[in-house]
Design a protein around this nucleic acid. Structure first.
Lengths: 203, 203
DNA sequence: TAATACCTCCTGTAAAAAGGGGATTTTTAA
DNA sequence: TTAAAAATCCCCTTTTTACAGGAGGTATTA
């Protein structure tokens, strides 16, 4: 029986993954945490085999948590949980010792496959194309590093001009990124863009 | 020992209030729920003395939950939890049988006072001016019914023109509301407005 | 090496929003 | 009942976005 611990600050994700996992025969949900601190707190007196760890946590980055967890219990198999947008940070998770990753909208069978893979001592890293495919099925698209950067600044209330100054590029470049953001996130103006970005937890 | 149950869909609020309550001598946190359904589920087999109940829940309105809870257990003392913006719905909570309300950023002593008041059989309703004062200390301002309505539509990506059509008012009126929203929420453009609104959980 | 994705930059037009000012009527609360 | 607050409406100007439609350079990789 593999014991899985879930770390994500979004109730929906925890509920969704838990409900899929309880239906699997040889997998058990050991518990969950909604912050890095409470996750680390859990592992002081408790344990698990696999940790599904969100990269975006409210108090500290999943990368830090990953390192800290492995220092405490090096036998832990950590699988990064990520939204479609945060692939940039995957390399860091790998470097921090994670054994695989999953998209948050993964199917039950994908999650099962990943857990079995890491328990068998293998790693579970999908290629960029596989991600792309899996996301296109869900009407999602990869955002690039630069696009995420611009998106964050837009949401902070900066204008194209201000963003251009900050990133040392021209205003038209910022506008290009803005256009592709709106097209990728299917937002017809800035308000919808910011809202979608926050709801999809991209920023 | 007064047993308090907290219902709010935001982890931060639950953590915040819980951590304040555990420090109070005669108050105990009975548990928490993050949706109306799971709250009602809890009270099937369990109980508490006081329920701190958010008005904005993901699945159903706090007002419905309040009524349902009191039908199940009429002795429950329900205190509405609200953000600075949702005062419009307070009267409904009162009608639904709530015994008082608290702002989510209330101090430990205010929460204690409210709990003791309802346990003693009194009600705990602050006047509009008291709220206003307490909010000005936190750099917050009351949003009106109409402003919240406009804000929601802005965040959905509607333009002033579209909002005007929807609400059967003139575009300039919508623009006025927009201006006062930006001034109240201290946002310098739409992006910041939407972000602040989502972060403060107004919409 | 050829394809692809990404980042960069451009022109131009039209629509919306931001910022300033002010005014009237209707609602609400004391 | 009366004052305050909210909701409605209008003017004007400038700035910012939205939309269309490119194009060149670089880096990765099949």
């Amino acid at each position: 029986m593999t014991r899985v611990f879930i770390v994500d600050d979004h109730p929906m994700v925890i509920e969704g993954i838990s409900s899929m996992l309880v239906q699997l025969p040889d997998i058990e949900v050991a518990g969950h945490a909604m912050s890095g601190a409470s996750c680390l707190g859990y592992f002081v007196n408790n344990s698990a085999d696999v940790v599904l760890l969100d990269i975006n946590l409210p108090d500290q980055s999943g990368i830090e948590v990953c390192k800290a967890l492995l220092q405490q219990k090096s036998s832990l198999k950590i699988i990064a949980l990520t939204n479609f947008d945060q692939l940039t940070y995957l390399q860091n998770m790998k470097d921090a010792g994670a054994k695989g990753y999953l998209l948050k909208n993964s199917s039950s069978s994908e999650i099962e496959k990943a857990i079995h893979a890491v328990m068998a001592g293998n790693e579970f890293w999908l290629g960029r194309d596989t991600i792309r495919e899996s996301m296109e099925g869900h009407n999602q698209l990869l955002l690039t590093r630069r696009e995420i950067e611009v998106l964050k600044l837009i949401a902070e209330g900066l204008t194209n001009n201000e963003i251009a100054d900050k990133l040392f590029v021209s205003t038209t470049t910022v506008d290009s990124h803005r256009k592709s953001l709106m097209s990728k996130l299917q937002a017809k103006n800035t308000a919808a863009l910011v809202r979608t970005a926050l709801e999809k937890r991209i920023i």
